[in-house]
């Protein structure tokens, strides 16, 4: 193991343990790690946007002759007007441009790309092959989708048929949330195993090279 690799492992181990130290209680070592993490994450996005957006999508095409890209460049620069109270309203122009475009894209993508395909995937023929299991699944999915949608429909009081369907909906939702919770816990535990494995195998293993 080279000296550089050793330094890398010890740096990683220090910050891993510093974050884990919060499990005992809030302490200065954790706070140091937390603030460095916040700073590095912000810096990471600066680097990412600088290269993938400012250089690759704005500067390089402009230098290659796409001079009209100066317009989104200026719109982007206008966003910084927010820092001066007197002219902060100017940033609304850029914001409105982004919001309007995003709204237009969303309206189509949500309805055409999400709602319609999801409804199509829900309404499956019962006798479409796959036997009893597939038919039973198809019924569960139709019931689940309709009752979940009705449970979240608050424009009318949940009484009568609506109330019964909403009640079925909450049973479905509880099962799904339980499944989702179990799945999330296991994903987090998998990450924990990864970090503990690193400490046990790589970090403590590196001690064997020192002593």
């Amino acid at each position: 193991m080279s000296a550089v690799e050793m330094i890398q492992i010890w740096v990683m181990a220090f910050f891993t343990l510093a974050i884990f130290s919060f499990l005992y209680k809030d302490n200065p070592v954790y706070r140091v790690a937390e603030h460095i993490f916040a700073g590095l994450s912000a810096g990471y996005y600066v680097g990412l946007i600088w290269k993938s957006v400012i250089i690759q999508q704005l500067w390089e095409p402009m230098m290659a002759g796409s001079w009209w890209l100066i317009i989104p460049g200026l719109l982007g620069a206008l966003m910084f007007a927010r820092f001066w109270e007197k002219i902060s309203w100017v940033s609304r122009i850029s914001l409105a441009f982004v919001m309007g475009n995003t709204a237009g894209i969303f309206l189509i993508s949500q309805l055409h790309g999400l709602v319609l395909p999801q409804i199509k995937a829900t309404m499956l023929p019962l006798g479409g092959g796959g036997g009893l299991t597939a038919a039973l699944l198809a019924i569960i999915i139709v019931l689940g989708v309709i009752s979940t949608l009705i449970y979240f429909y608050f424009s009318k009081e949940h009484k009568g048929a609506l109330g019964v369907t909403a009640k079925v909906g909450i049973w479905f939702i509880m099962i799904a949330f339980g499944a989702h919770f179990g799945y999330t816990v296991m994903a987090r535990i998998s990450l924990l195993i990864g970090r503990v494995y690193f400490l046990w195998n790589d970090w403590l293993g590196s001690l064997a090279h020192i002593f």
């Binding site: 969303f106 309206l107 949500q110 309805l111 999400l114 709602v115 999801q118 409804i119 995937a121 829900t122 699944l137 569960i140 999915i141 139709v142 019931l143 689940g144 989708v145 309709i146 009752s147 979940t148 949608l149 979240f152 909906g169 479905f172 939702i173 099962i175 799904a176 949330f177 499944a179 989702h180």
Partner: peptide, 19 residues
Amino acid sequence: GVNLAVQRGILIGAALGAA
């Protein structure tokens, strides 16, 4: 089955809300 149905219901509701 159940999980997929509920996720789909929530997704459709959220998509309609977003639209």
